[in-house]
Nucleic acid binder design. Sequence first.
DNA 1: CGTATGACGTGCA
DNA 2: GTGCACGCCATAC
Length: 83
Amino acid sequence: MKTFAQKVRALVAKIPRGETLTYAEVARRAGNPGAYRAVGNILNKNRDPKVPCHRVVRSDGDPGGYAWGRKKKIIILKQEGAL
DNA sequence: CGTATGACGTGCA
DNA sequence: GTGCACGCCATAC
């Protein structure tokens, strides 16, 4: 039984380049549609270089947050063509 | 085990 | 349209 964090990281790592998923979407795919809160929390404490957490945005269209800086996140998305 | 936290989401003023 | 408050879940301490 993988922990929710493990599932989330695996899903985020599967996000194709140039595409973005919302925390709610990731949480839903992880099996816990109501744990979108935990998704952000997990990525925040478990920022893994193998996980493109910058491809995870909020449902409002806002970039959300980024452990390395929200601004940096936007730049990366722009470079990938997701923005 | 219980409390506090957070990169959210929705609702209401 | 903007701002504040509440609710929600998993993880950390």
